[in-house]
């Protein structure tokens, strides 16, 4: 049986102070197994990015529980959260978020600056090779195309050999060809056993995942394994 990596129960999140409170998540519960490839879908403002930030240890929930590998994340200090972000997860953002005027190599190396790992340069080279960018290693990041920038971001996300990769609209700023390449890389990483959580509002992108969690108005609207979803839609069509 697959190991439960993430267990979320009745997660609620609100922003603001006493006077102006914005409730974003209204009680979300689900589990993610190790090695799963999951897409979180939903329209803008549905709370999908907020959910990713919380399960990605970038933000804290307001109420509810979050167990990571059986450990209560709500009890983690800021430093512990920073350590987990460094060792357990990798992030890929829609805007790439690369350091400008910095080489591909140094961008990919960034997480390793805060890590105790040995052979850092070797790990950087391996990560760059995994996204087929060896020929761009010493390029300044500003000079790359959008697709290449996102591949650098993926290399940076995997350089620390994390368990989970969080990707927030990773193809949102790319043309379809570059987007396809990015999704192929995610597929390959999934095949290697990485857990992948993809936030997107594009159905085509979500379809690459094995499971799609739909969020609407801060609640889970559906949680479907793609195979089952495909069968269900075929049944609808037959009717």
């Amino acid at each position: 049986m697959a190991n439960k990596l993430i267990e979320i129960t009745d997660l609620r999140k609100q922003f603001g102070s006493d006077e102006v409170i914005t409730k974003v998540l209204h009680g979300v519960s689900f589990t993610v197994n190790e090695g799963e490839y999951m897409a979180i879908m939903g329209p803008s403002g549905s709370g999908k990015s907020t959910l990713m930030h919380i399960i990605g240890f970038l933000d804290r929930l307001t109420t509810g529980s979050y167990l990571y590998n059986g450990l209560d994340v709500t009890k983690f200090s800021d430093n512990k959260l920073a350590s987990i972000r460094n060792s357990e997860v990798g992030f890929v953002f829609q805007q790439f978020n690369l350091l400008s005027n910095t080489t591909v190599f140094d961008n990919v190396k960034l997480p390793l600056l805060y890590s105790e790992k040995k052979n850092k340069d070797e790990l950087v080279k391996q990560a760059i090779a995994a996204v087929d960018l060896e020929h761009r290693t010493n390029y300044i990041s500003n000079k790359l195309s959008g697709g290449e920038k996102q591949r650098v971001a993926i290399a940076r996300a995997i350089v620390n050999q994390p368990k989970i990769i969080f990707a927030d609209e990773p193809t949102g700023n790319l043309d379809s060809k570059a987007g396809t390449k990015i999704m192929e890389i995610f597929e390959a990483l999934h095949q290697e056993g990485k857990t992948i959580m993809l936030v997107t509002h594009e159905q085509d992108t979500a379809n690459h995942a094995g499971r799609i969690l739909s969020i609407r108005d801060g609640l889970i609207a559906s949680d479907i394994m793609v195979e089952k979803r495909r069968l269900a839609s075929e049944a609808v069509l037959q009717k």
Binding site: A82, S83, R85, N86, N97, L99
Partner: peptide, 16 residues
Amino acid sequence: TAEIGLRKAVGAKKSI
């Protein structure tokens, strides 16, 4: 600001 956010996201502690 964005760089600081990125550094924190990839594991930089406040003290760093």
